[in-house]
Nucleic acid binder design. Structure first.
Lengths: 345, 345
DNA sequence: TACAATAGAGATAACGCTTACAAACATAGA
DNA sequence: TCTATGTTTGTAAGCGTTATCTCTATTGTA
């Protein structure tokens, strides 16, 4: 149905291989024929067939993007469309297509990745999450298939190209902000400890506490997804403590919104009764009430960098594993407030 | 590098075509050889090359998904990951891949779609938005390329398969809820009128007002993106009116959160001072404060249906244009409150 | 002037798979 | 025994590109 390279060749009075060379912008081709062929291509509305190209080239000019498994609402996090935008931006500018992979379960994801890789549909893969002992990572590593992780690999970190923020430092700095405002009882609310990002941010939180000589208390740590009503209960318990916290470090803006809401149910207001700091700086954190003081991790750029790294790696398989740290900035807004009450033993 | 069909054929002592037939589950193949070939495939770790397949088949077993242009924050709307999940679910189960297309501008989008179509990389396309006079739609229509719209086409509606909610009725019903609660001065806040969904929901709003004998006032309608600070100003103006509204119909949960926040800046609280109803029922609308009374449009199912329709259409091009209406439900939560104050002329 | 070097373009063989079409084989009916 | 019929498999020609090799002019050099 479509116009093929042969049709163009015939029309331009050259051989198919010549047309191919024109497409590839081969140097050994005279300006005259180049023009003639290009004209013919335009006139006939010729567009190369990507599948044929991929077959001959053994390269698909497309990169796979893997979202975490989510039967739950985690995927509703604006983080994902935003990284996608960043990735898409670079991919587009480099003439790569995006192949998306999602799934309800980890097995489904793995299966999808296997398909992508084995079927030669993609040249490389970007993982939009990083969790402990991920079979997908192992698979990719085993097959020596180019991939990059957005986030920090949970193991074999030196072998895996990844783009990340310095979440430990970010966690530390944002916690310090709370400390500087006079808070001494600061709790931590984060997602699953299987997620590397949670662990890192908590490390930063711990570091800040230690440096300030504040205790790092077990009962001040909550790990929840806020999908189950368990979240509410955990928060309740936190404030039923003898010495409830006055400051909260929450690892995600979306989660923060849930927390603010839960607190209010208990009659606690942010920031009047309790200060809260958060991570990601999605659009929401600006329009919610109160606007959140949050670590802006520059999601869009994370995506861009990931795409860049991957394409480099795809073009030259011998490219060594790299680590790109996208600097964060802190958005100071109004979810925290000065506090001078001293720490009560 | 990879194992090819020939390798398997040799190993199993059959011809390549036989292997191919085994893959395709061709009926005219003896159980014995089928087993033998399958065993060989497994042992050698054979996986068909998708590009070669697509080339021979003239079908790529993959569907393109087009997100709206967004240099702005509109894409951070949880709507998108959610439809994607729905689409992905069906696609996966039917062994289709997902090709994603985004872009900063409308031109970029169009260009991307053209590439997808011309390069034979995709068998069909799902549009995740519907706007007035969309060049993408025209292009697809012109080329008679299978596609479906999530939403309502702005024109040639009978020629375009689309899956949508009854947004007019939804708009009407949710507005009626406000009216039943005694509200008589109800304003409307929505996105651009270029978006069909905005128009439809507004129509429903208007219908409800008219049926209840309430006036449909120009000054009660705001169209904004809430990205520009213009949003704040518009809301200010609304409440500077002689008779400010006591009820608000907002076309999107994300927008609602912005509105609630803006109102609070003006010292107005939802639902105490003003009731608010909304659309979409994303996860956020449940965890925000107050939890929003909102029209649940079943985003996930929209995605599923769209994928199903597209795949049908792809498999049989002569499939007529269809219209699938996913029923909505209303989530009553606590962003509205009874009001008995009568309408003041 | 002769001969190597080189630029420009054609022929042809992959790339891995599908699919008529043909061939081989077995079975049954005459 | 021989043809007719049906089942199972093989052969080979694409699908649309790219890459390699070859051939012919043309240019430069001794």
């Amino acid at each position: 149905m479509g116009v093929t390279i042969k049709d163009v060749a015939k029309a331009a009075g050259v051989a198919p291989s010549t047309v191919s060379r024109v497409i590839a912008d081969h140097p050994r081709i005279s300006l005259a024929t180049k023009k003639r062929v290009k004209k013919a291509m335009k006139e006939m509305g010729y567009h190369p067939n990507a599948n044929a190209r991929s077959l001959a080239n053994k390269s698909s000019q497309s990169i796979g993007v893997v979202m975490p498994a989510g039967a739950d609402n985690a995927l509703q996090n604006p983080f994902f469309p935003e990284v996608l935008r960043g990735i898409s931006n670079i991919a587009h500018s480099m003439d790569y297509s995006l192949l998306l992979n999602t799934g309800q379960t980890d097995e489904e994801i793995l299966e999808g990745v296997k398909r992508m890789v084995h079927s030669n549909r993609t040249d490389g893969i970007i993982l939009l999450y990083s969790q402990l002992n991920d079979p997908v990572v192992n698979f990719l590593l085993e097959h020596n298939f180019p991939f990059v992780i957005v986030g920090k690999p949970s193991e074999r970190i030196d072998e895996i190209t990844h783009v990340d923020n310095d979440n430990v430092r970010g966690g530390k700095e944002i916690t310090e902000h709370l400390i500087q405002q006079g808070h001494e009882r600061i709790a931590f609310i984060g997602g699953s400890t299987d997620l590397v990002v949670t662990v890192d941010r908590m490390k930063g939180y711990q570091l800040a506490l230690e440096e300030a000589g504040l205790p790092f208390l077990e009962e001040y740590r909550i790990h929840t997804e806020f999908l189950e009503s368990g979240g509410q209960q955990a928060v309740n318990e936190l404030f039923a403590l003898e010495n409830p916290p006055t400051g909260l470090v929450v690892t995600d803006d979306l989660m923060s919104i849930g927390v603010v809401s839960m607190l209010e149910k208990c009659g606690k207001y942010v920031p009047e009764d309790i200060s809260l700091v958060s991570f990601n700086n999605v659009y929401l954190s600006e329009i919610t009430r109160p606007p959140l003081t949050t670590v802006d991790i520059h999601i869009y750029e994370l995506g861009q960098q990931a795409a860049k790294c991957l394409i480099e790696k795809v073009k030259d398989k011998s490219e060594p594993a790299k680590r790109v740290i996208v600097p964060y900035t802190i958005q100071y807004r109004s979810s925290t407030i000065e506090r001078d009450m001293p720490y009560i033993k």
